[in-house]
Nucleic acid binder design. Structure first.
Lengths: 223, 223
DNA sequence: GGGAATCTACCGACCGGTCGGTAGGTCGAC
DNA sequence: GTCGACCTACCGACCGGTCGGTAGATTCCC
């Protein structure tokens, strides 16, 4: 009974976070009033304030929840993959899946409201973001060191990766022409195979040296 | 005298737009009050409303100005480049230059406030954005058709291009460790040369077929 | 087992303050 | 003497947040 009660409590709070996240995701943080959030939770504003300290704390909790979901669904799933290139490819796939799947308004809020929080709340979220950037930079560096990819600036590579993946929330439509899987596959190939060098020659100059690309060593056998 | 007066007028209005853009860029559209904008222009709110119809029109004018700046500084500069790959590369360079150069708060507002406008104002701006996406898609398609790049989904390629480039406003610091030119160069090479295939073999398996990539035809001699 | 005490969840009413926007007046330049 | 630029003063609506109060379930004591 005790645990059941507690269970209800935390579930209730998460339901509030989810409702608030939906509204804030649609209208922006500043564009959403506590009144509206309360109404969407079928409560009055005073009732909502029984569960919530203040508006900024609400945003912080939404973002923390989103960071947790991301770290669990993406980061922890790929952290132990030994080959850095395969690690990055799988990471991109999972991250795209997270952003395209409509289940995570919280993550989109993290992306969009990147400068809304202030003070230590801002610093805390930024720290968790920075860890992800470091992880990507380190993976790119490792891949370069192993000769698995050509030498690139790891920071630029990491933010290019992130830009491609995280920009998706601005244009992707779940019921649009392109499926999430299509986007995912194409984008991974775009970054890791690149644009040059048609793998099977389409309209090659007969004399030109057209050639199939074989990964140099460390046999990462993959599509 | 007449034209001088008009000149003053439009210059004055542009100064207001610029000041407003600075504030909105820093604090967001909903987070910036007309009071603050007026004060930054060294006016009262009523004085500001002498020049401005309403807040949404102000945002629309800022975005229109930004779209104009973008189209002039990027799109028109590359539209006539015959080779699609060279067109895209130069386009990316110019677009990165636009986003990293601090001179264009208006463009950042266009990027960040992508869902703030409503109705026909929103539709108008979205239409101009869509033209850019089409331009990129068409260029990628053309490059594929010519065999200059491997076959990729043009929409995904276009939005990957845009994601890499436009995400920059979220992380780039003009006085940071990386220069704008460095980012520009690295990012262009990342997308168009890709990650695989070290150009000069670093740790190759001696027996494996390591090979220098030569663009098939249309000799676009470029680093 | 029943009544008093307590607690949770919530409400209506309200706080000081700010929002976008406006009416009407002043004033200096042509 | 007119006209545009800009002001003071103000509007109704809404903001985030808090107040005293209460219905109903739970717990405690006898």
């Amino acid at each position: 009974m005790h645990s059941g009660r507690r269970q209800d409590d935390s579930e209730r709070y998460r339901a509030i976070l989810e409702t608030a996240a939906r509204l804030i995701c649609e209208r922006g943080y500043e564009g959403t009033s506590m009144q509206e959030i309360a109404a969407a939770c079928r409560m009055t504003k005073a009732g909502l304030y029984h569960h919530v300290q203040n508006k900024e704390q609400l945003l912080f909790d939404i973002m923390s929840y989103g960071m947790g979901a991301f770290e669990q669904q993406v980061l922890e799933q790929v952290r132990e993959i030994p080959d850095p290139v395969e690690r990055l490819r799988e990471c991109m796939r999972l991250n795209i899946h997270l952003v395209t799947g409509g289940c995570s308004k919280e993550v989109i809020i993290i992306l969009h409201e990147h400068a809304t929080l202030t003070g230590e709340a801002r610093a805390f979220i930024d720290g968790r973001k920075k860890r992800y950037v470091r992880f990507l930079e380190d993976s790119f560096s490792e891949a370069v060191r192993m000769g698995r990819i050509r030498p690139v600036q790891p920071t630029v590579a990491a933010f290019s990766f992130l830009g491609m993946v995280l920009w998706i929330y601005k244009w992707f439509q779940p019921d649009g022409r392109l499926s999430a899987e299509q986007v995912s596959h194409e984008m991974v190939e775009l970054l890791f195979t690149g644009l040059v060098s048609p793998p099977v020659a389409a309209v090659p100059a007969p004399g030109a040296p057209v050639l199939s690309l074989v990964p140099s060593a460390a046999g990462g056998g993959e599509s």
